[in-house]
Design a protein around this nucleic acid. Structure first.
Length: 429
RNA sequence: GGAUGGGUGGCAGAGCGGUUGAAUGCACCGGUCUUGAAAACCGGCAAGGGGGCAACUCCUUCGUGGGUUCAAAUCCCACCCCAUCCGCCA
């Protein structure tokens, strides 16, 4: 959510910056509602003030044993107008909130303008792409040949966009998650957390999934009329740890790492990435979340991106980092770096992590604050990034570490998580 | 699912129709004292929002929603959450 003061003061500049996303801010309707709000709010508060002071007089008169009939009559006369004003104001406030909740974040000045992913800015390429003296396979063929990846049985159990992993592939998948958690907690200073996978609507609103993106979510029912949502990313429960909290200054920055399954409906991506486990309804991810002082958030974004990159470096997987342009950026982000890993099977770089600074956009929605030097509550800045998407990392390992005979060499960094296993083949367990 | 108790400021915890945005303690900030610190003493200290150039001022908030009343943290109704015990259970 944007600061409403910003919209009141300089809506033209805000609209211009949002247009780069592109998002058309309805300036007229905002200004119309805002003008109405101002008028009604002032009138309502004036009536309330009069009622309060008259009521206090009644109390004072009664205390002295004097007659109160005249004052009570006066205050009674206020009743109807007050009630209608309060109702009117509540209605306008609801409208205003709805409008505000639908406005995306302002891109940071350093974000390149652009229309689509074609306009994203490559920052760096890291690692060396292997050359193969045989025809490379993709992870689907490799996994099925080993007997560890089964999409057909997953479709039987649940439908499309699910996978069943078995044997050495399932183990490799687990090893990757453990390896990521250990690296981030032991080397990057994150605190591991375990959270609910089902969350309430307030939490989804806090991080920006609701009200606009309900279609992207899976939901379930706690009771007949109480809905719970399956998390699309650990960002949601973890960032909401600080919802409605005032964190003491000395506790910043908060750094959390969390491994969870993620559930996405992938509505609107029909026909995209239908093969393999690149785009699934359910996938595991290790997520990094930081809550920081506003002065630090861009330095933190660089650091957090580096933490995600460290995983790929340790796994010796080649990747590149891109800055997402205005037109390709997510709703809540002020700036995003994507990390894209090289996939020989697709002969392309594919997103494996997305690291964003949300500035105060999420914090304002969820009233996540810290106490500044003067003791005043201030909105914190929130960040998060995948460190990394476990399923896609598995895909990257399978494809990059494949051998001519279809076996997979286990990256050195994972040996201790695989009980010393250095290679997996069809016979592995 | 059943029973009981409970949800009040950063925390603990009073208040149970009016002058209470809320006693008291802790924490925190400023000061006195001290070589320094502690202790002691004095003072300050909720959040969100509106109006105003400002000084300042007004509104809202005691789990949530609704109701009664001139007036609600306090009374009534519904719901939610937490704790404990019983039942069931990974």
């Amino acid at each position: 959510m944007l600061d409403i003061q910003l919209l009141r003061k300089d809506i033209t500049a805000v609209a211009a910056r949002l247009a780069t996303r592109p998002y058309v801010l309805d300036v007229d309707s905002f200004q119309k509602i805002e003008a109405e709000r101002k008028e009604i709010q002032m009138r309502t508060q004036d009536l309330q003030a009069r009622r309060n002071s008259l009521s206090k007089q009644v109390g004072a008169l009664k205390g002295k044993g004097e007659d109160t009939a005249a004052v009570m009559e006066q205050v009674a006369g206020l009743g109807d107008e007050l009630k209608s004003c309060e109702g009117h104001l509540a209605g306008i406030q609801t409208q205003l909130d709805a409008l505000l909740l639908g406005i995306p974040n302002l891109p940071h000045d350093s974000v390149p303008n652009g229309k689509s992913s074609d306009d994203n800015l490559e920052m760096r390429r890291v690692g060396t792409r292997r050359t193969y003296d045989f025809a490379v396979k993709d992870h689907v063929d490799l996994g099925e040949q080993i007997g560890g990846l089964d999409f057909a049985v997953a479709a039987k159990i649940a439908g499309s966009r699910f996978a069943v992993m078995k044997g050495p592939i399932a183990r490799l998948h687990r090893a990757l998650a453990q390896f990521m958690l250990d690296t981030h907690t032991q080397e990057h200073g994150y605190t591991e957390v375990y959270t609910p996978y089902l969350v309430n609507a307030d939490s989804m609103r806090g991080t920006g999934q609701l009200p606009k993106f309900e279609d992207d979510l899976f939901a379930t029912f706690k009771s007949k009329d109480e809905k719970l949502y399956l998390i699309p990313t650990a960002e949601v429960p973890v960032t909401n740890l600080v919802r409605d909290e005032i964190v003491p200054l000395e506790q910043l920055p908060l750094k959390f790492v969390c491994h969870t399954p993620c559930f996405r409906s992938e509505a609107g991506s029909y026909g995209k990435d239908t093969r393999g486990m690149i785009r699934q309804h359910q996938f595991d991810k290790v997520e990094l979340v930081q809550v920081v002082h506003p002065d630090q958030s861009y330095a933190s974004l660089e650091a957090l991106t580096g933490h995600a990159e460290a995983i790929l470096q340790k796994l010796e997987l080649p990747y590149r980092v891109v800055t997402i342009c205005t037109g390709d950026m997510g709703f809540s982000a002020a700036k995003t770096f994507d990390i894209e890993v090289w996939l020989p099977g697709q002969n392309a770089y594919r997103e494996i992590s997305s690291c964003s600074n949300f500035e105060s956009f999420q914090a304002r929605r969820m009233q996540a604050r810290y106490r500044d030097e003067k003791g005043k509550p201030q909105l914190a800045h929130t960040l998060n990034g995948s460190g990394l998407a476990v399923g896609r990392t598995l895909v990257a390992v399978l494809e990059n570490y494949q051998n001519a005979d279809g076996s997979i060499t286990v990256p050195n960094a994972l040996h201790r998580y695989m009980n010393g296993v250095e290679s997996i083949t069809a016979g592995s367990r």
